[in-house]
Design a protein around this nucleic acid. Structure first.
Lengths: 168, 168
DNA sequence: ATAAACTTTCAATAATATTTGAAAGTTTAA
DNA sequence: TTAAACTTTCAAATATTATTGAAAGTTTAT
């Protein structure tokens, strides 16, 4: 397969994966484009490469910066802003985990926590079932949370080394 | 907080979490409802509890069965179908992991694999960057895949015991 | 100060996803 | 059979989310 075709396919696949996991398709595509680009690109070039409008490109780039996945770059003597992506896939994974944990997981954990002081009759099956589910979910969520925390601090090789070692 | 209010809040929170992770909000809500219900419920009761239409309820229930998260139950002498959710949170997590791996991760891994035999000039930075990204993503994806596989087979306590042990 | 080069905003529009509800389909009991 | 009880389907309506593009805003050089 030719490089040009492969690039398009990669961008498409990355975009699809993103959209299935709650990340805007265009955002994932722009990220993919920058990820496989050796040099930083301008808004103009990104618009061109993905056939998207200026407004869309601008907002998407801003979002990606907010996610910590790309950065602006300024070239000496040029007005234009260039954008480039962190190429370290482990950093990317950590960054995404960090943001989603903060934006989505933590608010839910907060609600679950509030709910755990629900009042009711210990003899009521509805109450007991509710309590049990909450407790179990909290336990699981606590473990997920701890593991993510470790991941966020860890080096890739150490993390996978540790995790995979116990699984063979 | 009263049980009734707490239930509503839980259903809402579960629905929101679901929608942020690419799962239809109604589907997550129906699942939440059944998860905290001690007995199996009819379509009618679910429609009523969540104010959704018959068609929506029917499709959502079918989807949830497809995900392996709920089951039908028949009561002796009754025509109606009852639905109940597996209450084991670890089973739920595994089931969701299994389905999403199959439906979304695997197709992408397949594409990534196809892309890895892209042809090009080793001296071309665009080619080198592309190759490098692919290789790195494949490596990470491989580790995620192995870990998920282990999770799917494992008992909860063993899995978290093993993972958390190395993280203390 | 002015104008060119570039970036940002946001109301309008388009695309996508979800939901409805009534009709069609199925099963059971008498 | 027939009809009541129940389930499924799916075209149309609604709601949600993403995108456009032109106008407004900003920065820099002269």
């Amino acid at each position: 397969m030719e490089l040009a075709a492969a690039k398009l396919k990669f961008i498409e696949a990355w975009g699809k994966l993103g959209s299935e996991w709650g990340i805007n398709r265009t955002m994932a595509q722009v990220h993919a484009l920058l990820l496989i680009s050796p040099e930083a690109l301008t808004t103009e070039e990104i618009m061109e490469a993905l056939s998207i409008s200026r407004g869309n490109a601008n907002m998407t780039l801003r979002d990606l910066i907010g996610w910590g996945l790309i950065e602006k770059q300024h070239k000496a003597g040029e007005r234009k802003e260039y954008f480039f992506a962190d190429k370290d896939v482990w950093n990317i994974a950590r960054q995404v985990a960090k943001e989603r944990k903060k934006r989505e997981l933590e608010p839910v954990l907060k609600v679950l926590n509030e709910l755990s002081n629900v009042t009711g009759d210990e003899k009521d099956p509805a109450y007991k079932t509710f309590k049990k589910s909450l407790t179990d979910i909290n336990k699981l969520a606590g473990n997920v949370d701890k593991t993510l925390e470790t991941m966020l601090k860890a080096e890739e090789s150490w993390f996978w080394g540790s995790v995979l070692k116990v699984f063979k």
